[in-house]
């Protein structure tokens, strides 16, 4: 069984902790960090990274363009 996997890299200093990506993520990957960044916001981080599918919905709703999204599609085995 092939499963599409994804990963996100978040620019935590650009993040303003608006929580929109956390709510939008369909697989509940993201959470807000308990510690603040240099601006004083709680940035988003991938708490449950294994569930990420690389659907990039987080990146589409992020107003501060913090996300880089990677996706890995395994080769289909015969």
């Amino acid at each position: 069984m092939s499963k599409v996997r994804g990963a996100v890299v978040i620019d935590t200093e650009a993040c303003k902790g608006c929580n929109l990506c956390v709510v939008a993520c369909p697989t509940d990957v993201l959470k807000l960090h308990e510690h603040v960044n240099l601006k004083g916001y709680n940035p988003a981080y991938p708490a449950n990274h294994d569930a990420c599918t690389g659907c990039k919905i987080c990146a589409l709703v992020c107003p501060d363009m913090c996300f880089t999204v990677y996706q890995y599609k395994p080769e289909k085995s015969a």
Binding site: R5, G6, A7, G54, Y70, Q71
Partner: peptide, 22 residues
């Protein structure tokens, strides 16, 4: 299910970028 053991770092290395800031 060999793919499920991939760590996020490996996905970043092997996978392709599907979204990047313009």
């Amino acid at each position: 299910m060999t793919t499920s053991v991939l760590t996020p770092e490996e996905i970043i290395k092997k996978g392709k970028v599907v979204f990047k800031k313009t």
